[in-house]
């Protein structure tokens, strides 16, 4: 059994493929460590209670709420944030589609939607409108009314599929 003191915890956190050794208070969530200790402010927060979806990140490929995950629990796991979505300077097809289709208005919920949509398409490349709607049901957006987001995911899926089949 391993115990940590209440003061600070040191873990190696792998974010977007890079491992960093970090020292932080054990009560910090992944959200807090990403934003405050790693400066990765692309991950947003709208409630910090698991009620909005703005802070979604991928943990071992699954979209989760970083506000509800203690950073300590991520020891040895792979974290992927919006900052890691593009392939170097080349945007992910979902990013291109979100930008083109009006899926990002204020842009605040966008990182959470994008990582969730990426996880969906990684698993269901031909996701139907119903599956997209269901998969994104834990991400609130107050700007778009969601329709252009659905369309963007579909456009990205189509482009990714076309690329695969080439």
């Amino acid at each position: 059994m391993r115990r940590s003191p209440t003061n600070n915890a040191r873990i190696a956190l792998t974010v977007n493929g890079e491992t960093k050794e970090l020292l932080f208070a054990p009560n910090k969530t992944l959200l807090e460590v990403l934003r405050e200790d790693l400066g990765l402010t692309g991950t947003k927060h709208g409630c910090e209670l698991g009620e909005c979806g703005a802070c979604a990140v991928l943990l071992n490929g699954r979209p989760v709420l970083s506000c509800l995950v203690l950073a300590l629990e991520c020891d040895g796991r792979q974290v992927e944030t919006i900052e890691g979505l593009a392939d170097d300077a080349r945007l992910h097809p979902l990013q291109e589609a979100f930008a083109d289709c009006g899926a990002a208005q204020c842009g605040y919920c966008t990182p959470g939607f994008l990582v969730t949509a990426k996880a969906l398409l990684d698993e269901r490349p031909n996701a139907t409108r119903g599956e997209i709607t269901e998969a994104l049901s834990g991400n609130l957006c107050r700007c778009t009314g969601y329709i252009q987001i659905f369309e963007a995911v579909e456009e990205a899926a189509a482009k990714m599929g076309a690329k695969e089949s080439k």
Binding site: T41, G42, E96, F98, A99, A104, P111
Partner: peptide
């Protein structure tokens, strides 16, 4: 057309006040 601030928003680089 794509909005001029579209790229910043989809890459998480738009700097909101708390960022």
């Amino acid at each position: 057309r794509r909005r001029v601030d579209g790229r910043a928003k989809v890459t998480g680089q738009t700097r909101f006040a708390d960022d």
